[in-house]
Design a protein around this nucleic acid. Structure first.
Lengths: 254, 254
DNA sequence: TGCCCCGTTCGACAATGCTAAACGCTATCG
DNA sequence: CGATAGCGTTTAGCATTGTCGAACGGGGCA
């Protein structure tokens, strides 16, 4: 195993610590949380602050994440090829289905939302781009776990928290559902993550036939389900969208 | 001057380089652009990749920004106090003015958009959160340059690119406009950044009476102007919003 | 006014990350 | 089809660089 640069790993750990703790953190907290000397933590934080990755509250001296992260994160979206190719198709899907559309990719232990089209009504909705979803209970997550070996390994290792009474946490039961997902080409989330909310998702493949992401729609069960099952026309629409994006990425449809 | 950590500065420079170059960059390009040995650049990139800040295209071996930046950048928004306080007021402003609302803070050499409310019609609009605006030609930028000494210094040092025939680039002329901004408490952008687009913005102060950001609206000149000047009722609405947010932040209004 | 805790600075050591050169690989071209 | 050029990657050794422990200064609480 090749060795990584220590100061960078520590800086990354600090950013993740600051992202996790809800409020601003003091230097002493950060240093002790990471097991570092205060002076060491201070040197890293000073550099991160100078580069804009961290900001310091002038009054309390506490640290929080910096604006440069927002700028770079947005740039990441601009460069993202999958997202660029999916933009037009997801708009169509939102219009035809009448529900919110999500586009997600595997990131670390979950699904990172890289695109989100609001449900086309005038209700107030919050943009969820940049948020994470769990692998074991969401439609996007199951699709990725079923089609991407790395995602599958992450799902097996994860702790699989139960969110509702319907959340499946047993590994063998999940594996059976992933087999079903693979055979039918899509996955559902029937109130397994949020009460009253259901979802469908399908995988997106690149030119090497590897799964690179998933698209899906999410909505209130009263709208997207009938007789306790996802409405077939919505499933078809999601799968069509996934196929269209895959084709745009160069995947051969044979 | 205290010394910063070299490897971190280099890593930050790489991220900024990757954010600037439109396409993915190869290791050799990165190393030569920063004047580093290939092995040095490789070590930093390997660590950044392991931490999720950069990704490597398996086919070409080229590098691009990573998903962790999106996740952290979104978290930055969640923690942002100014943005949280402004959310409800900007919604009202968009509704009452009928135009798109922007909330910006000073970041490096420009204005970073931290919140963006779409114009309340059904037209297609792209979210500009995370984008940067210049200080010298935009309403948000002028407000910040007029009220924040750091922003003013940045404006003086910047190169002040002309975007339209109306863009003011002469420093003394800008200074006169900043004086006007300070005396009247708001700034405008009358087709100085984009042809056919005008804007108004006003400063937001914190409890120490320091400018921490700016709110404003932007729209087609045909809608937001009358007789070549910004409509007074829109200026009033923007200033009311800025005052409301300032009061929420603890600024005394006297 | 006293104390305590926090963020910051200092100086010395050695571990750490940097440099230069060589490796294996793929794609290109004669 | 074999040679070449360019790529990303690995290796080894040196000295630069980041780390550490301790001491400093200042703000807030009692």
């Amino acid at each position: 195993m090749a060795k990584n640069i220590q100061s960078l790993e520590r800086a990354a750990a600090m950013l993740r610590l600051l992202a996790g703790g809800e409020r601003r953190l003091g230097l002493s907290d950060i240093a002790s949380s990471l097991g570092l000397a205060k002076a060491t933590a201070h040197g890293i934080l000073r550099t991160l602050q100078h580069e804009g990755f961290v900001e310091q509250d002038p009054g309390s001296g506490r640290y929080q994440l910096g604006a440069e992260l927002l700028r770079l994160g947005t740039t990441y979206l601009d460069v993202h090829e999958l997202r660029a190719r999916a933009l037009v198709w997801t708009d169509d899907l939102a219009r035809s289905s009448g529900e919110a559309v999500y586009l997600g990719v595997l990131h670390q232990h979950g699904v990172l939302i890289v695109h989100h089209v609001f449900r086309p009504d005038d209700s107030r909705q919050v943009l969820e781009v940049g948020a994470m979803q769990p692998l074991h209970s969401t439609a996007l997550g199951k699709v990725l776990a079923a089609t991407d070996p790395v995602a599958h390994a992450e799902l097996v290792d994860a702790k699989r928290e139960p969110f509702t009474a319907r959340t499946v946490t047993e590994l063998d039961e999940i594996e059976r559902e992933l087999d079903l997902t693979r055979s039918q080409g899509y996955a559902t989330d029937n109130e397994e993550t949020l009460e009253g909310v259901a979802a469908v998702a399908a995988p997106i493949y690149d030119r090497r036939r590897l799964a690179v992401g998933a698209v899906g729609i999410t909505g209130a069960v009263e709208r997207v389900c009938r007789d306790g099952e996802l409405r077939p026309e919505l499933i078809a629409a999601v799968r069509d969208t996934a196929r269209s994006v895959s084709r745009d990425l160069g995947a051969k449809p044979f």
